[in-house]
Structures are given as C-alpha cells and as structure tokens.
Design a protein around this nucleic acid. Sequence first.
DNA 1: ATAAACTTTCAATAATTATTGAAAGTTCGA
DNA 2: TCGAACTTTCAATAATTATTGAAAGTTTAT
Lengths: 168, 168
Amino acid sequence: MTLEEAKMEFVQTWGTIGSAWGIPRSMAQIHALLLANKESLSTEEVMETIQLSRGNVNINMRELINWKLVHKQSKLGERKEFFTAQHDIMAMAKNIVEERKRRELQPVQELLRQLRSETLEGDNAEIEHFQNLMQELDDFIQQLDQLSEIWLKLKDNYFFKKMIKTMS
Amino acid sequence: MTLEEAKMEFVQTWGTIGSAWGIPRSMAQIHALLLANKESLSTEEVMETIQLSRGNVNINMRELINWKLVHKQSKLGERKEFFTAQHDIMAMAKNIVEERKRRELQPVQELLRQLRSETLEGDNAEIEHFQNLMQELDDFIQQLDQLSEIWLKLKDNYFFKKMIKTMS
DNA sequence: ATAAACTTTCAATAATTATTGAAAGTTCGA
DNA sequence: TCGAACTTTCAATAATTATTGAAAGTTTAT
C-alpha cells in the first residue's frame, strides 16, 4: 500500500467518525488530511486531494482554525496561505474538549440552573422528582468538568497509571 | 412557572443538545420527557406531549432501549406498554459511554491498527510522520478508554475528590 | 492606479437524515 | 377463531445540513 492510499483511507474514516459526532464530514476530512501531512498544504492542494470546492475548504478551514486544530502558515516567497494541523495529539484533544465544553456543556448548565431557580407549580411528588433530576444532572456535568480537568493535567503518564491502579 | 412548562423547556433543550452530538432530536426529546417523569408513560402520552408521530416514537423508543436508557414496563390491568427512563444518572452516563465506545471508538481503533500493520511505500520522512500519527492516536484512544474506566468506577465521590486534589 | 493572485461570501442546490402515517403485523380476551 | 387493541414497518415526504461555484472582495507587486 502506498502512503497516499493509507492517507486517503484515514481521511475517509475520520470523516465518517466525525459525522457520527456531529462534525461536518468535510471538516473532519480536511483535519485528517492536514494531520497526516507533516508539511503544510494550500487550499488548492486540499481541494484537489479530497475533491472539495474552494468555498467548502475555505469555510471548514476557518472553523478548524476557530477550534484551534489548524493554523495558517506562510511560505517564503509564496503568496498563498498554507495550513498545518496542530500535530500534538494531546494539545489537539485539549482544544476539542474545551471547545465542546464551551459550546454544549455551558448552555445545558445554564438551563439547569435557570430551571432550578424557578418556583414550580404542580404535583408535589412530581416537582420533587423533577428538581432532583435537575440537581443530579448539574452534579453530573460538574463531574464531567472535573474529569476533563484531571485529564488536561496529565502531561505525563505517571499519576495516570498510579490512579488507575488505585481504582482497580 | 408550572411543572409542565419546565418539563417542556427541558425537553426542548435536551433535544437541541442531542442534535449537536449527533443524536436525533426526537430521540433526545423522548429521553428527556421520560427522565422528567417519575411515572412511566405510554406511546400515546409521549406522542401527545411532544407532538411526534407514532412511528417516530416507536423507532426512537426502541433505540433508547438499545442504549439501555429506557426500559419497558407493564402496568397491571393495562394492555399497552409503558416506558420509564433509567433514572439513575450515573448508570445512564455509564450506558452512554459504553455505547459510544462500542460504536465509534472501536471502529477507529480497528482502522488505526490496520494502517499500522501495513508496509507503506513512499517518502521515508512522510511515512515516519504518518506512522507516528497512527501510534499517537492509538495511544490517545487507549487513554480515553482508561479514563472512562476510572470514571465508571467512581460509585462514590470520595476517591474522586481526593484525586482532584492530588492533581491540582 | 492597475491587474493578477488569491480569499471570502452566500444564494442556489445537493445530499443526508429525520419524520410521518397508513397499512401490515401481532397479541390476547372472549 | 374473531376482532379490538395495540405495535411495528417502511416507502414517501419533509426538514435539516452540507456543498458548490461564481461573483465580490482583498491584497500585493509593479
């Protein structure tokens, strides 16, 4: 198998997985392609390799930059822009976690807190159940949050392995 | 605000969040409704409350049962089926994590291992970069896996809080 | 100031995914 | 065995989301 074939298989699968997680296929594919390439690529190169329109590459590239998964690079003597992935996988994961937290966890937390602050009218037992749910979900999200904190601090594996042992 | 209004707001938001994570809106809404109700509900009641067709409720309910987030219940003297959510939030989370691991992490792991086992032809430096990426992603997924293990073992909060302190 | 090189935008369109609802299937009491 | 009560299926349709590509916008060298 040639390297190019392997890259393309990786790009395809990454796209499919991304889709399942609510990330546009093209965005995930572009990301995979840049990850697989040590050297930075131009918009044209990306368009050509994964057969996407200029607009699509442009928009998704911008989004990847928003997520801090990709950054622009200029090449000496070249006018066009080049793009490289964040190649450090841990840093990449950190950025993904933080972005999703900000985009999806925060809004739920706000809803939960808002609903918890309301005085509700209705059947008492049902109200208690509902408010209990709100609290449990809130606690749960906080735990998730803490878990991600732990994880982000795991620069080296020492504590990590120790913890696993402790818990087993 | 009445309890019913609060429930509906919760249902709506849960649906939106679900969507962002690649879960069908209706499925997330049904789940939220069942979570919010202490008592089990029939298909009809769900249809009525969130305005969904019978087919939709049926299909998504089945999926929720596959995910082990909901289970059927029969009521004495009633012919129709009733449904209740898994009300234990930790158990719920566990089921979601396991299901997603099985559905989305495993396929990636298989791809990575397959690509790592291939002998690649092409530029040596690029091949090294690519194989390095495969390895790092593989390691990363294993870490995720271990992290979820740790978390699933956290029945009570004691170790958890201790760990956070250690890491801080 | 001009024009070539390059990037961005966004309305139109395509592709995908979710939903409907009516018909077929099942279960069960009489 | 019948039929009412209920559940399931799935082709058709609707809704949503992603993608295109051409035109407008921007930058830069001369």
